[in-house]
């Protein structure tokens, strides 16, 4: 039991990060139809900028805020400089553009920062909490709580605010949204900023546990994407649940089967989901029109 609980805790912790990455994917996918392979770089930037801002003397909360704001700016730049000019390009081109962006950001991070592994102190100390024979880091609670807070915040934003509804309307039908006077370019920019900020926030939450370096982005992007797909592409609730489930699945695989193949878990899940229910757990079916 305590063993299971231990795996559960670690699964929820990484799952929280995957869930945030998956949410970020979903926001951009819904606003622009683009799958952003550079999503993981936002997480990396969030962690790395906090590390360096903190080292430069900023207090941790301020450093984290600076990192989130800077990453949001990177997200906006990505949209303005690479995604908007390529509107209407085929899927292969868009895939290559965002992978190119991911490699570019990684290369820039390697130059601006360095190639070392970094971390910063946990928010509330390093003493773990004991629960039924298992232990959980306080930082894990921060990560899980932070992820849920973002999820609830987004839900409120999309359902309760005019701006959020404008984003939803744009994702449903871009042209119709323009016709009723929504500035869809602004919505796109907002989505990239929001998505990048969420990614950076995830980076801030998880760095004290997993540490970070310039090259952690790609793996996270793939996991987040797997989570989003598991839940059903384009569905925020699905993305969040999918990310958490994926984290759990990975932790259980590592715990009970083989830690070597824990990375494989994500991809076995993706393949299984795609084969047996291509719409994902929460997705809806679509029909081609002729």
């Amino acid at each position: 039991m305590s063993e299971f609980l231990q795996f559960l805790f670690s699964g929820l912790t990484v799952g929280a990060v995957y869930a945030l990455v998956a949410l970020g994917f979903t926001i951009i996918y819904n606003a622009s139809g683009v799958v952003n392979f550079a999503q993981g770089e936002f997480v990396m930037l969030g962690g790395m900028i906090t590390v360096f801002a903190h080292a430069a003397g900023l207090p941790l909360p301020l450093a984290a805020l600076a990192a989130i704001a800077a990453t949001a700016a990177v997200g906006v730049a990505l949209n303005k400089l690479a995604i908007e000019p390529a509107r209407g390009a085929p899927v292969v081109s868009l895939i290559i553009i965002t992978i190119g962006a991911s490699i570019f950001i990684r290369g820039a991070a390697q130059l601006i920062f360095d190639k070392q592994i970094h971390s910063f102190p946990a928010f509330s100390g390093d003493d773990p909490i004991h629960v039924l024979g298992a232990t959980i880091l306080t930082q894990s609670l921060w990560a899980i709580g932070g992820a849920f807070a973002v999820f609830v915040g987004l839900w409120l934003f999309f359902t309760r605010t005019i701006l959020g509804r404008a984003v939803l309307a744009t994702s449903n039908n871009r042209l119709a949204a323009q016709l009723v006077g929504i500035n869809t370019d602004f919505v796109m920019t907002l989505s990239f900023a929001l998505s990048a900020a969420i990614g950076a926030f995830a980076g801030v939450l998880i760095t004290p546990i997993t540490m970070t370096s310039y090259d952690v982005g790609l793996g996270l992007a793939l996991k987040g994407f797997a989570g989003a797909m598991l839940g059903g592409m384009g569905n925020p609730k699905g993305a969040f649940a999918g990310g958490l489930l994926l984290g759990l699945f990975e932790a259980m695989t590592a715990g009970y089967l083989s830690s070597q193949y824990k990375e494989a878990a994500a991809f076995v899940v993706i393949l299984a989901v795609l084969f047996f229910m291509p719409q994902g757990l929460f997705g809806s079916k679509s029909t081609d029109r002729v």
Binding site: A82, A86, A89, S93, L94, I96, I97, I99, G100, A101, S102, I103, F104, I105, R106, G107, A108, Q110, L111
Partner: peptide, 12 residues
């Protein structure tokens, strides 16, 4: 890496 990424984006 910087240049590779840039080339990929610019060409596309």
């Amino acid at each position: 890496q910087l240049i590779l990424g840039l080339v990929m984006m610019l060409v596309m």
